[in-house]
């Protein structure tokens, strides 16, 4: 199996980050919309497996299928661009500024949210026969997943917020490790194997993934969860985004950059 040495794939990470900054608005939106939608579908699938088997591990082991699919199709997730885009800025690639990075993140957030929301609406229609019946078992489970992960944190106040944030950090630490590990291999089997473990891990441990949550919570609201839209944003989505950013950038991108790339001489000099 072809394997890239660390210095080789860190250069690839920076190149990938640079290419995200250079992507047209349309491409960025399309790729992030599709990324959000496929990840949402994978989350719906994993919850269904969990409910039907009664075993959360089964759902977690199967969840990476969707993630791997969207990675191989070249779609974007906010968690991924959090990790690689800052590297292009730090490496001072031409035109790479924090402003351009923020633009990319805003576009990817919008696209991911649109995609996840589309799947949330479609799945809600499926779970409730077009809102004509009470939600089925999976629907009920989804409806109440959101409560514990918004109001649950809220009831603990600052400690709850801290827990939420750390869970989000841990989440993207794992997810981005998976994405980066995928870059080490040049074959599809290699990429798939490398991604599977970290992704299954985060899902089983219930870490907070900003895009998975863009599906879980709107679905919950539509299927009768007892929390409000404001609860969702303040007590989940926004801190999760911040935690994902810290986890991806601080614990995955920067360490690899400084240890494997910076110490090598820059070019023929």
């Amino acid at each position: 199996m072809a394997y890239l040495a660390p210095t080789e794939f860190v250069t690839k990470m920076i190149d990938a980050g640079e290419s995200k900054l250079l992507m047209s608005t349309r491409d960025t939106l399309i790729r992030s919309y599709m990324g959000g939608a496929i990840l949402a579908l994978a989350a719906a699938f994993a919850v269904t497996v969990t409910v039907n088997t009664g075993n959360p591990l089964a759902g977690a082991i199967l969840f990476p299928v969707g993630f791997i699919l969207l990675y191989l199709l070249g779609f974007d997730l906010l968690t991924g661009v959090f990790t690689i885009v800052p590297l292009a800025v730090i490496d001072k690639r031409a035109g790479a500024t924090w402003r351009a990075a923020l633009r990319n993140w805003a576009l990817v957030f919008t696209g991911n949210f649109g995609g996840a929301l589309t799947v949330a609406i479609f799945m809600s229609i499926i779970f409730t026969f077009g809102f004509a019946e009470a939600p089925n078992a999976v629907g009920q489970k989804l409806g109440h997943i959101g409560e514990g992960r918004t109001l649950g944190y809220q009831s603990h106040g600052a400690a709850g917020m801290l827990t939420l944030f750390v869970r989000a950090v841990m989440c993207n630490w794992m997810v981005s490790t998976g994405v980066v590990a995928a870059m080490m291999s040049t074959s599809v089997t290699g990429k798939t194997t490398a991604m599977w473990m970290p992704i299954a891990l985060f899902f089983y441990m219930g870490f907070e993934h900003s895009i998975v949550n863009m599906f879980l919570f709107p679905t919950g609201l539509m299927l009768g969860g007892n929390f409000t839209l404001l609860d969702y944003f303040i007590w989940n989505e926004l801190p999760t985004v911040a935690g994902n950013l810290v986890g991806g950038m601080l614990f995955v991108g920067l360490p690899l950059y400084y240890t494997h790339y910076r110490r090598t001489a820059k070019r023929k000099a």
Binding site: L4, T7, E8, T11, T264, R267, K268
Partner: peptide
């Protein structure tokens, strides 16, 4: 001198003439 997925670049010395040369080999 440089190492990326596309190429690996070395500063080298020609053993016969002793002068410096850049050697580039294809990357993984």
């Amino acid at each position: 001198l440089q190492h990326s997925a596309r190429s690996q670049v070395f500063l080298a010395r020609d053993d016969s003439s002793g002068s410096q040369v850049v050697i580039k080999v294809p990357g993984t």
